[in-house]
Amino acid sequence: MSSESLIKMANQIAQFFAHEADTVQAARSVRLHLQSFWTPAMRNELSALQVEHSDNTLHPLVKAALSESGEH
């Protein structure tokens, strides 16, 4: 899967959960979704992209979810 597709999908997931008032819970929801529905390879690639794209390419909730899961 292309890097752009992974970033786009992860950001869409984050946008879905961004309405939650508690940002910590929103990040946990993103993390849980990624763990439940994404393969380990997809999560690992997304984690690698987080390092490559230190700009604002990834939604802050995605970054928080990856940091919280220890997959970086």
Rank of each mutant, 00 (worst) to 15 (best):
H33C: 13
E68I: 08
Q15R: 15
T39K: 15
D55Y: 03
I7Y: 07
M42I: 04
A27F: 00
E45V: 03
A27I: 08
T39L: 12
A21Y: 11
K63P: 00
H19N: 12
S47T: 11
M42Q: 15
A48H: 05
A26I: 04
T57H: 03
A21M: 14
N11W: 01
N11M: 08
E4M: 09
Q25F: 05
A41K: 14
D55T: 03
V30Q: 05
N56M: 04
K63H: 02
L34Y: 12
W38Y: 10
L6S: 06
E20R: 11
H72F: 00
F37N: 13
V24I: 11
L49R: 07
E45H: 11
V24M: 10
S67V: 05
S29R: 15
T57W: 07
S36H: 08
S69D: 15
L49I: 04
H19E: 09
A14T: 10
E20S: 07
A18R: 05
P40H: 02
N44G: 10
A65V: 14
A65G: 11
Q15N: 13
N44D: 15
M9P: 04
S29W: 07
N56G: 08
K8Q: 10
K63Q: 02
H72T: 08
M1A: 13
E71Y: 11
E45D: 12
M9R: 14
S3K: 12
L66K: 01
V30H: 01
H33L: 09
S47V: 08
M42R: 14
S47G: 13
W38F: 09
A26N: 12
L6H: 07
M42G: 06
T57V: 01
E71H: 05
Q35G: 06
H72E: 00
A10Y: 11
D22R: 05
Q35F: 12
E20G: 02
M1P: 12
A27H: 04
T39F: 10
R43A: 00
E68T: 13
E52D: 01
A65M: 07
N11K: 08
A26M: 13
Q50K: 12
A18N: 14
A26L: 04
A14H: 08
S5E: 15
E4W: 04
Q35T: 09
R43K: 05
F16I: 14
Q12Y: 10
L6C: 07
M42S: 07
F16K: 09
V62R: 04
V62L: 00
L49F: 00
A26K: 10
L66V: 00
E20Q: 08
A14G: 06
R43T: 03
F37W: 09
E71W: 04
T23G: 01
T39P: 13
H19P: 06
S36A: 13
A41V: 15
M42A: 15
M42E: 14
E71R: 05
A48C: 07
L58P: 01
L58S: 03
P40T: 08
M1Q: 12
M42C: 06
V51G: 01
H19G: 02
E52C: 06
A27G: 10
L34Q: 09
H59P: 02
T23Y: 12
F16M: 07
D55H: 06
A10W: 01
K63V: 15
M42T: 02
S2M: 07
E4G: 03
T57F: 07
A18L: 06
H19A: 11
D22S: 11
S67Y: 03
I13T: 14
L46N: 11
F16G: 05
V51F: 00
I13R: 12
L6N: 04
E71N: 02
E71F: 09
A64M: 08
A21S: 14
H53S: 01
